[in-house]
Simulated scan of single mutants.
Amino acid sequence: MTPPRETPPAAVGVVLAAGMGTRVGADGNKAYLPLAGRSMVSWSVEAVARSANVTRTILVFRRGERDLAARTLAAEVPQLRVELVEGGDTRHGSEENVLRHLAPDIESGAVDVVLVHDAARPLASAAMMDTAVTTARTRGGAIPVLPAADVVETDVDGRLSPPDGTLVRVQTPQAFRARPLLDAYLAAADGSFEGTDTASCVQNYTDLEVHVFPGAATNLKVTFAPDVRLAERLLQDRISRSGTR
Rank of each mutant, 00 (worst) to 15 (best):
A75C: 00
D105M: 09
V77A: 05
R81V: 01
A132W: 09
S44T: 13
S125R: 15
G13C: 11
S42F: 07
G13I: 11
H117N: 15
A17K: 03
H92Y: 11
A127P: 00
E96V: 10
H117T: 07
H117Y: 03
A18N: 15
L123V: 04
L99V: 12
G19M: 01
G109I: 02
S51Q: 09
T22I: 07
V116H: 13
T134N: 11
L68W: 01
M20K: 11
D130G: 07
R23N: 14
G25E: 06
N29M: 11
N97W: 02
A119V: 10
G141Y: 06
L99W: 04
G93H: 12
R62C: 02
G93Y: 07
A70I: 00
A74Y: 05
R62M: 03
L59Q: 03
A17H: 12
E65N: 02
P34R: 14
R81P: 01
E83P: 01
V77F: 00
A11K: 11
P9E: 09
T131M: 14
D112T: 13
V54T: 12
I58F: 06
G25F: 08
R56P: 00
A136G: 06
A69F: 00
A127V: 08
R81A: 08
A126Q: 04
V98A: 02
R71G: 00
R81H: 12
R121T: 15
G21L: 06
R66P: 01
L99I: 14
L99R: 13
M20Y: 09
T138S: 15
G88S: 05
R139Q: 13
R23I: 00
R137Q: 13
L99E: 06
M20W: 06
P122E: 12
S42C: 09
E46N: 04
N97P: 00
A75V: 02
A119G: 15
A17C: 10
L99T: 14
D89V: 10
M129R: 02
D105A: 15
R121P: 01
A52K: 14
A18Y: 02
A17W: 01
P78G: 13
V48E: 08
N97K: 13
A142I: 01
A132F: 10
D130N: 15
A127R: 14
V116E: 06
M40N: 06
G109F: 00
E107K: 12
A70V: 06
A119R: 08
L73P: 01
T22M: 07
D112G: 15
H101Q: 12
R38N: 07
V41C: 05
V111W: 07
P8V: 12
L123A: 15
E86V: 07
R100K: 08
T57E: 04
R38P: 03
R100S: 05
A132L: 05
T135F: 09
L102M: 04
A120M: 09
L68F: 01
A26K: 04
R137W: 04
D89H: 04
P122M: 14
A142V: 02
V133I: 11
H101A: 05
E65L: 03
N29P: 11
S44L: 00
